[in-house]
């Protein structure tokens, strides 16, 4: 007597499982993201498309993603395990990071060096050396820690105001801009804490460098 009813109950349960799965698949996996995209495109079109920065109609980066700057007159960001996904191509189309190693493809993250990992100390030491070379006036113990340590994402666009200020003398020398002008630029790109309490004070490096480039008149050249 029980056999068929048990079997029916099982089939009924399976049907419920299957159909509810498919409905939720459609609802959560498709309707929701598409709906969210639709509304976002209307309300926040710039953000929804990655907050790209356009110069003369040309995207040069994103407001929220740092870049690997090499020119001496540009402010430097934090070390990145993936060089901010910034690369150049040689004639054969091979892609390389600015330091000459092969481009690993779109990535994010850090080296994941534990504090006790000797490779961390090595990397930091090397970075301190090169920084001191580029900024001869700076004393070792005055370098802010964030400038010598890698961010978690490898894409951090920010440094602390202290890290920005400490670079100003060297930037002034190589860009030819006055120190006051540079200080103003840093000031313009500094964001305070949210409501004065939450988070930290940040300087957006890509914003600073855009302003430096503009002040140096580089952006018109680029257009040609």
């Amino acid at each position: 007597m029980n056999e068929p009813t048990n079997k029916n109950a099982f089939l009924h349960g399976l049907r419920q499982s299957l159909v509810v799965t498919l409905i939720l698949l459609l609802l959560c996996g498709f309707v929701f993201p598409v709906l969210l995209s639709g509304i976002s495109m209307v309300l926040f079109p710039s953000q929804a498309n990655g907050s790209l920065i356009y110069i003369n109609g040309q995207a040069v980066g994103s407001a929220y993603i740092g870049q690997d700057f090499t020119e001496p007159y540009f402010m430097k960001g934090r070390p990145s395990a993936y060089n901010y996904n910034t690369y150049y191509e040689d004639e054969q189309g091979n892609k390389y990071y600015n330091d000459g190693s092969r481009f690993a493809g779109l990535s994010s993250g850090s080296n994941n060096y534990a504090p006790s990992n000797p490779e961390l100390a090595e990397r930091v030491e090397a970075d301190i050396q090169s920084f001191l070379e580029a900024n001869p006036d700076v004393k070792r113990e005055n370098i802010p820690a964030d400038l010598m340590t890698a961010s978690g994402s490898g894409l951090d666009p920010h440094i602390t105001p202290a890290s920005a200020r400490i670079q100003i003398p060297a930037l002034a020398a190589s860009s030819g801009l006055r120190v006051e002008k540079l200080e103003q630029i840093v000031q313009d790109n500094t964001k305070g804490k949210f409501l004065g309490v939450f988070g930290e004070e940040t300087v957006n490096v890509i914003g600073v460098n855009l302003d430096i480039a503009e002040a140096m008149g580089l952006l018109e050249n680029k257009d040609k």
């Binding site: 993603i65 910034t86 191509e89």
Partner: peptide, 8 residues
């Protein structure tokens, strides 16, 4: 701005 590329 430096002429290199970046993937976003």
């Amino acid at each position: 701005m430096e002429g290199t590329f970046q993937v976003l």
